[in-house]
Nucleic acid binder design. Structure first.
Lengths: 215, 215
DNA sequence: GTCTATAAAATGATAGAC
DNA sequence: GTCTATCATTTTATAGAC
């Protein structure tokens, strides 16, 4: 048949793997199932990837990129003013996405634990570093839009937010109770917002002294 | 050889499965690996369980029982007085256990997602029902020890607590940052404690009226 | 009842024709 | 470069000797 650019084949296999893992779970993501989903012969698989683990690692990288992109968009949508409102809006936006893509979120957890067991793609650590970065973007933006400063390092708050999002996700995946999830989002936003102080009255002993006067 | 009571064999296989899953992950928990761990011939496996999935379901049930037992003990340890302190002490107790049994907590997540994919043991729902019950015990006890009442149904608060514990766990499993986890425990305890009011002054229609005047 | 031996199917990876 | 055919393992599950 026609020659296909290696980069394209690689992309198609990754997308096929994402589809299979989201639909049937990582256990069902065999080389045959993935190649079949990509409408490629099995032989083409090892022409692009040396091993199955190498593909799984590529899938994690791909999904982390998407996650970051998704987190960064839609944050600046006008409306909310206070830090709590911005955070809650961000979490509710995540819930909207979660309820429409539950299988993909399930897949992300499966991939994280797979990485933890096999050491693939730097273990869970690499994946959560990406989550922390995505959360840091929201945390930082919330302070800017709310016109306040954080009392704690953004990195630490980003880790807290990641934990809150994870808990929100696992419980919703288990019981699919969206109303409860939104209530938890409210609790989570308020909890983080306690770590803030007005930008006009900077505190004394705080680690961060600078100020972001946005607009 | 000697005849062994079926109930004992069953128990030994379940314990062996827990060991294997915690050590090597659920993917590595093959019938051979489990039987070998239990020092039984492979043939004995299907003498007790019809299939591998049936064993996994039994493992989930077993671990949920342990989880409930663990949650209920150690709560009444004297010391903390306020609701926040009781909750934080409970969460820190969990962190102590988590840091000593990280592989088992990893296994619990793997089992939950496995159940979600296969429908084994009632899916994730059954497992999280057990978590909710365990969390409800801590939530209820915190109010009693703190001499307060909750503004929201205990079931809802128990779900919140489960989400907080889940997020605490996943992030710690990813970065093993115990100091950060304890800080998150403090945040989580304070967040839940906002849903309380003094038992001596029951409020009327209010969702939450007073708040914490952060010094 | 117990356990060895084996069946039947699935999987990751490769060889080799074109 | 492409893809069919196949290897070598590993898996769940069972048959059948004792």
């Amino acid at each position: 048949m026609r020659r296909i650019a290696p980069a394209l084949r690689r992309e198609e296999l990754i997308n096929a793997a994402v589809t299979v893992i989201a639909r049937d779970g990582i256990v069902a993501a065999t080389t045959r199932a993935i190649a079949s989903e990509a409408k490629m012969p099995l032989g083409a698989f090892h022409y692009v990837f040396d091993s199955r683990d190498e593909l799984i690692a590529a899938v994690i990288d791909e999904l982390m990129g998407r996650e970051l992109g998704r987190a960064l968009e839609g944050i600046t949508l006008g409306g909310p003013r206070t830090v709590t409102q911005v955070l809650e809006a961000g979490l509710n936006g995540f819930i909207d996405w979660l309820t429409e893509n539950p299988d993909l979120e399930l897949a992300l957890f499966e991939l994280a634990f797979f990485a933890a067991r096999t050491g693939t793609s730097g273990g869970m650590g690499a994946q959560y570093s990406a989550y922390y970065r995505a959360s840091a973007a929201l945390v930082a933006q919330a302070a800017v839009l709310g016109g306040v400063q954080w009392n704690e390092p953004v990195d630490r708050l980003a880790r807290h937010l990641t934990a809150l999002v994870d808990g929100l996700t696992t419980t919703w995946l288990a019981d699919r109770d969206t109303a409860a999830a939104r209530e938890f989002a409210s609790l989570a936003a308020s909890a983080l917002a306690t770590k803030v102080h007005p930008i006009s009255h900077p505190q004394t002993t705080v680690t961060q002294e600078y100020s972001h006067h946005a607009h």
